[in-house]
Nucleic acid binder design. Structure first.
Length: 562
RNA sequence: UGGGGCGUAGCCAAGCGGUAAGGCAACGGGCUCUGAAUCCGUCAUUCGAUGGUUCAAAUCCAUCCGUCCCAGCCA
């Protein structure tokens, strides 16, 4: 372990605690954490916060972090989820080494500890049914009362508990409870249930067990067995800490981990509960756990987010105990910053408008050199064909340009990126609808990009593609899944779904260098945003997901003008 | 109403008795063959409120207010 003078500066309250522990040589100066997901759904960005915290702490202190599946409730857990969780943790860039564990791997040990508790007179088998247990528990303001079965003899408890395991009783017929204090102001201490009878086959232990331990019992023991020093969980478990400590103190385990609670992540314009995310998937509101609109790790991955951006985001938001509601702009900033540095720039026209350069020779094609990223010359360049018939973006032309609009308009000039300055001479419209069909322009041959004698300045630069060379593509534009920053403030969060959360454009035209792309490739489409090649791509028909748009000052100006 | 947390800018968040870091957002300006990026600048006389202790309080004490969590045989 690093000597005291090499401790990382504490950037949050958990590091402060660890630094103190290390100064006092607690836990032999080890730092050992764990990430303990329940395999009952896919991981989301909130889990990423926890993963970065737990694995990050272990890294910072040269300690270890385990991956442990908290699989004590077979009715909700599936292997599909454990597989996806491992994939996501790895993808985020973390490594649990040979420390992959399952709470179910401790079932036998957990059972033995329960026997010990019974023998010590600290646990008993209770015959009350669920409803009666609730009644006996009392309320928030009134103490509970002792179960009539609380004072059974140790022998009887032992016999009954063994027979629970042996399958002699039906589901829910009896439970094992800790004998603590029915009048405790902390409801978790009012003789909590430790084991329930549940005939359900478990994804790892099959039908070996018909009794399963509860979280409050299994979790502390699992931590202790693994030598975890700092057991980090979310705020809602703060009330459970006395019980966590009670279990560890009353059972034979090698150490006493310290539970520390932090605030879970809430993000604007999305939901973060597994229950709600599952509802979106199961009700077909989104197309799966990896729908690019989902805040799941798999959704973000498909959308085009990078692990680096997600980790950066988790670092920026910090770790504290106050319930926070993070601005989605923060996440978007992290991915923009990452992709800005690494994505090649290309041209793609999403909503094409035909442009004919009247003074450009019919059959001429020029191959223009275009750098892939002006700020990173090492990323090289490619050739882009220029010809008489082109397409530009519909929104880059306005017949009646508003103030401050410095794109194309009748009589105006703009620069075509990597090419020439053109001037709009004539507009061809549909006589019936008034729709603009095509633009006739002229180009100035002396203004080709890179010409050293070229000194003319125009205010606007547009992206474009050559009609004869462009590749047809599909582009999926995504927006927030919900229209409200906090969709959960209403009874049914689904009422706040954003109907425009996905727009699919099938008539896009991209430059020829994008003909051959691999799913997962990320690009910046000039002036539009960052895009990632989707897995739906087929040969000759690339499909792109918009990861995030570029910041758009013009859109802001227009909005302000309204 | 019992218990446990939390209140520092629009949003995160440092601060740990010596006079309010940083990031996001926003706003103004420079630069620009991406209205992007980048650069420069602005953005809390005050830390939920009120009292108290102190030479000195966001930091200590008291009271109050607000807000979140807990009454699964879920995690």
């Amino acid at each position: 372990m690093a000597p005291n003078n090499e401790l990382p500066n504490s950037t949050n309250f958990i590091q402060s605690i660890i630094n103190e522990d290390l100064k006092r040589n607690k836990n032999d100066s080890r730092v050992h954490t764990r990430f303990p997901p329940e395999p009952n759904g896919y991981l989301h960005i909130g889990h990423a916060k926890s993963i970065c915290l737990n694995f990050g702490l272990a890294e910072a202190y040269h300690g270890l972090c385990n991956l442990r599946f908290d699989d004590t409730n077979p009715t909700k857990e599936e292997v599909e989820y454990v597989d996806s969780i491992m994939k996501d943790v790895k993808w985020l860039g973390f490594d649990w080494g040979d420390r992959l564990f399952y709470a179910s791997g401790y079932f036998e040990k957990l059972y033995e500890c329960a026997l010990d508790l019974i023998k010590a007179g600290k646990a008993y088998v209770c015959d009350l049914n669920a409803e009666q247990i609730r009644e006996y528990r009392g309320t928030l303001t009134e103490p509970g009362k002792n179960s009539p079965y609380r004072d059974r003899s140790i022998e009887e408890n032992l016999d009954l508990f063994q027979r629970m395991r042996a399958g002699e009783f039906p589901d829910g017929f009896r439970v094992l409870r800790a004998k603590i204090d029915m009048s405790s102001p902390n409801i978790n201490m009012r003789d909590p249930v430790l084991y329930r009878i549940q005939r359900a086959s478990h994804h790892r232990t099959g039908d070996k067990w018909c009794i399963y331990p509860m979280y409050d019992y299994a979790h502390p023991i699992s931590d202790a067995i693994e030598g975890v020093t700092h057991s980090i969980c979310t705020l809602e478990f703060e009330d459970h800490r006395p019980l966590y400590d009670w279990v560890v103190d009353n059972v034979a385990v090698p150490c006493h981990p310290q539970q520390i609670e932090f605030a879970r992540l809430n993000l604007g314009y999305t939901v973060m509960s597994k229950r709600k995310l599952r509802a979106l998937v199961e009700q077909g509101i989104v197309e799966g756990w990896d729908d690019p609109r989902m805040p799941t790790i798999s959704g973000l991955r498909r959308r085009g987010y990078t692990p680096e951006a997600i980790r950066d985001f988790c670092e920026r938001i910090g770790v504290a105990k106050s319930n926070s509601f993070v601005d989605i702009a923060m996440l978007e900033h992290s991915i923009r910053e990452d992709l800005n540095a690494r994505a090649p720039r290309l041209m793609a026209v999403l909503r094409p408008l035909k442009v004919i350069i009247d003074n450009y020779p019919e059959d001429q094609v020029e191959m223009l050199d275009a750098e892939n990223n002006a700020e990173h010359p090492e990323m090289g360049s490619r050739q882009v064909p220029f010809a008489r018939v082109l397409f530009i973006e519909q929104e880059d032309f306005r017949e009646d340009p508003p103030k401050k609009f410095f794109r194309l308009a009748p009589g105006r000039e703009v620069r075509l990126k990597h090419a020439y300055i053109i001037k709009c001479e004539r507009v061809v419209k549909d006589e019936q609808t008034g729709e603009v069909l095509e633009l006739h322009c002229t180009y100035d041959p002396d203004t080709r990009s890179g010409m050293s004698n070229e000194m003319r300045k125009v205010k606007g630069t547009l992206h474009w593609v050559s009609a004869a060379h462009a590749v047809k593509a599909e582009v999926r534009l995504y927006d927030h899944l919900f229209i409200k920053e906090n969709p959960e403030e209403d009874e049914d969060f689904r009422a706040n779904l954003n109907p425009g959360s996905r727009e699919i454009l099938t008539n896009c035209l991209v430059e020829p260098s994008l003909a051959e792309v691999q799913p997962g490739n990320r690009y910046q489409f000039l002036r539009q945003g960052y895009f990632c090649v989707d897995t739906d791509t087929i040969a000759g028909y690339p499909v792109f997901n918009r990861v995030v748009s570029l910041k758009d000052t013009w859109a802001k100006i227009q909005k302000a003008g309204q």
